[in-house]
Amino acid sequence: MTVRFDTKIAVLLRDDLATWQRLNVTAFLSSAIAGADPALIGEPYVDADDTEYLAMFRQPVLVFAGDGALLTKAHGRALSRGLRIAVFTEDLFSTGNDEDNRAAVRGVPTEKLNLVGLALHGPKNAVDKVLKGADLHR
């Protein structure tokens, strides 16, 4: 049975990142979406031996890629639509903890953020408009 969702969880990555960077950025950004809306998380998993596992998102997370200009456009579109987003800037690759990460973002004006990724959750149509021009990550 295929379930259709009215909302979409999406991560947009800059297309020139190394594999380890793509994976790292996706993990960090996904955690922001989970933290922003606990209702997106389902029930814990349990196997046939009653071993319990952590709960995950109730719906798929779609990962997209685009160049830096597209990330900047998507960022602006999301903000203009009032969507809450998570951002990952290039500066965060050189920090080592949450406090330094937040300081690195705080020190840069919105229009000058050197984005390597962003994530958002919202109504399907709004997310699709934000991501216009992005390709599903391969």
Rank of each mutant, 00 (worst) to 15 (best):
G96W: 11
L71V: 09
T72A: 15
D100R: 14
N101W: 03
E90M: 07
A119P: 03
K129Q: 15
A78G: 10
S80P: 00
K73Y: 00
K124F: 11
D49I: 08
P123R: 13
R58C: 04
R81P: 02
A48N: 07
N125C: 02
L54Q: 10
L113A: 02
E111T: 11
V108E: 03
K129Y: 09
L83K: 05
L71W: 05
N125Y: 07
A126I: 03
E99K: 11
A78D: 10
L118N: 03
F93M: 02
T89D: 07
L113M: 02
V108S: 05
A65C: 06
D49E: 15
D100Q: 15
G66L: 00
G117S: 03
L113Y: 06
D49M: 12
R58L: 11
K129F: 09
F64L: 09
A78I: 08
D98C: 06
T95A: 04
A86D: 05
A126Y: 10
G66V: 00
E52S: 12
E52Q: 13
P60S: 04
T72H: 10
D50R: 12
L79Q: 12
P60W: 00
T89P: 07
G122P: 10
V87C: 10
R77W: 01
L71P: 08
F93D: 00
A104M: 05
G42Y: 01
G122A: 13
N97F: 09
V105F: 03
G122S: 13
R58A: 07
A78H: 05
V130Q: 10
L62N: 04
N97G: 13
G107N: 14
V105D: 00
G117E: 01
V108K: 12
K112I: 02
E90T: 09
V116W: 04
M56G: 08
R102P: 02
L79K: 14
D47C: 07
G117K: 00
E111V: 11
A48P: 00
A103T: 12
Y45M: 02
R81F: 04
E52T: 14
D50T: 12
E111D: 13
A126P: 04
E43Y: 06
G76R: 14
L70A: 05
P60H: 00
R81A: 13
A69D: 14
L131V: 03
D50W: 09
K129I: 03
V116T: 07
G107Y: 04
E90Y: 11
F88P: 01
A55R: 07
N101S: 15
E90G: 11
D91T: 14
A119R: 07
A126F: 09
D49N: 13
K73F: 05
T110F: 12
S80H: 07
F88Q: 14
N114P: 04
G68H: 10
L62S: 12
T89M: 09
N114I: 07
G68K: 11
T95L: 05
E90A: 14
A69C: 01
D67G: 15
T72F: 00
P44A: 04
K129D: 15
D128K: 09
T72R: 13
A103H: 10
T72L: 09
K112Q: 14
D67M: 06
E111A: 13
P60N: 02
